[in-house]
Amino acid sequence: MTATPAVPTSGPRSWSDRFLARVESLGIGLFADQMRESGGSAQVRELSVAPGSARARVGGVDVWADLTVFDAEQWRRAEEALAPVRHRLLADEFPPDADALLARVGLPLLPARAAELTLDCACGRTSGASGVCRHVAALLGALAIAFDHDPFLLLRWRGRDRVRLLAHLRRAPSPSGPEPLSPTPTGFWAEPAPYPPPGRDDLPPAPALDELAPTGLTARGRPLDRALRQLYRAMTEE
């Protein structure tokens, strides 16, 4: 019997594939193949991504794609959600599961609904998210290509650039373990001073011990007054 060759598993989809598929799923009349093809055109120039807005010139026409940004509280939650991949982000690596981590706390990087994405073009043939002119398609296709080269642009589009995000992540407590319980961890973990061993006779006697006369009684074969002296010393030593 001939063994069936194993089918290789594919890696994570590229950011361009994810982005274009997401835009297509919004139902605004744009299709992934159309955007990809027009986005690679030499007609697309001066592409830039700023918090909340992406812009380009397509065939001499200005075109914009605005995306709802996260506010300060949402970014705080987003940074907490990214804690499992913090070290990879600080190493300038953008993990493929970053969007899934953010989506779990209701803050997906990619637009989740058409109302989040506002499209506009100077050609005048677009209106809000329903614009489907070729300039808009080219801008979104060019954006997809840019996300493959620098996925951190997705964060910038949502309102936080790479430098600021990494600065916040560096200040955040490390998720690798608990913080020290003492501001001076060296002292906290130091071996404590040993307790004085029981039964030492070279300690200076306390005044009350001088008044304790021999009783003549024994406990376990030892003079009772000696045992009482040791007990008293243990109770009164600083």
Rank of each mutant, 00 (worst) to 15 (best):
A115T: 02
V163G: 08
S48F: 03
E237N: 07
E37N: 10
S130W: 07
F94R: 00
D201Q: 08
D99K: 01
Q34P: 10
L139K: 05
P84C: 09
Q34W: 14
D66G: 09
D97C: 11
T68R: 15
F147C: 11
A213V: 05
R171V: 11
D201E: 12
T215R: 01
G199R: 08
C121K: 00
I28W: 05
L169G: 01
R160P: 00
W75P: 05
L153H: 08
E238Q: 09
S127R: 13
G124C: 09
A213I: 09
D225L: 12
L107I: 03
R13E: 15
P108Q: 00
V69S: 15
R164T: 13
E191C: 12
D148G: 06
R233I: 01
G128P: 02
T68A: 15
E211G: 07
S53M: 14
L224R: 05
R226G: 10
D210I: 08
W189K: 06
E179P: 06
E79S: 11
R113W: 12
D62E: 15
L143Q: 09
V132T: 10
L30R: 15
D150H: 10
L47W: 07
F188E: 13
R13N: 06
A193K: 13
R170C: 06
P8L: 03
R160A: 10
P178W: 06
R125F: 15
H149L: 08
A56G: 02
L165H: 00
D225C: 13
L231W: 14
R226Q: 14
E93V: 13
L169W: 00
Q43C: 09
L212V: 07
D225A: 13
V69F: 02
Q34S: 15
R222Y: 07
L117M: 05
L139V: 09
D62T: 13
P84M: 11
P151S: 03
G199S: 03
S130R: 13
R156S: 10
A65T: 04
E238D: 08
P214H: 11
A72S: 15
D71H: 09
R22S: 00
A56Y: 02
P12F: 09
G124D: 11
A103N: 07
G60A: 13
L119F: 02
L102H: 00
V105D: 03
C133L: 04
F147D: 01
A78N: 07
F70H: 03
R229N: 04
S182P: 07
A83Y: 08
A72P: 04
L224Q: 09
A208K: 04
S176P: 02
I28Q: 13
P183C: 11
L154Y: 03
A78P: 07
L117H: 01
G159S: 08
R233K: 03
R77T: 10
A21T: 14
T118H: 14
R226S: 13
A3W: 05
S16E: 14
L82T: 04
G11L: 09
E79Q: 15
L119A: 06
L102W: 00
L224S: 06
P197D: 09
P205M: 06
L119N: 03
W189V: 09
G199P: 02
A21M: 11
G106Y: 10
P197M: 12
Q74I: 07
W15F: 14
